[in-house]
């Protein structure tokens, strides 16, 4: 059983994508924790570590991703966690590449099929636990 957290850092309230992905992952048989909007990196990381989730998904559309996502990755590291992280939102290609270089498993743009996300999430989790 995969346990996944879908988190929304930053101040934007566009949670359609986050909710759709959360539902799709549930329907793919996962246990999904959705944090709600406007979460600080500290709240997200502490929740993910306390819940001991297998993987963390981050949804952001405000444009603050280059500030917030590296901060989340740093905080996870400082708490000794190596859980995989994936990102969804409107992320320009060059930023997506930078985020992947920092350790983000995948960046999904608008229109990414949820079935594909679910498949890949399974793979990321398998990969990280071996």
């Amino acid at each position: 059983m995969i346990k996944v957290m879908i988190a929304k850092p930053g101040l934007d309230g566009h949670d359609r994508g986050a909710k759709v992905v959360a539902r799709a992952l549930r329907d793919a048989g996962m246990e999904v924790i959705y944090t709600g909007i406007r979460q600080t990196p500290e709240q997200i990381v502490q929740s993910a570590v306390d819940e001991d989730v297998d993987i963390l998904g981050i949804s952001i559309l405000s444009g603050a991703h280059m500030k917030l996502i590296p901060r989340i990755l740093d905080l996870l590291k400082s708490k000794g966690s190596n859980m995989p992280v994936f990102v969804g939102g409107i992320i320009p290609k060059e930023d997506a590449e930078k985020l992947k270089a920092l350790g983000v498993a995948e960046v999904y743009g608008p229109g990414a099929p949820t079935s594909e996300i679910a498949e890949q999430v399974k793979r990321f989790v398998e990969h990280s636990s071996t």
Binding site: R26, A28, G29, M30, E31, I33, Y34, T35, S47
Partner: peptide, 16 residues
């Protein structure tokens, strides 16, 4: 599916 949405935590997130 065995899946679940664990949503109650949301209202307590300010205490996370």
């Amino acid at each position: 599916t065995g899946g679940a949405l664990l949503g109650d935590r949301v209202r307590m997130q300010s205490h996370a």
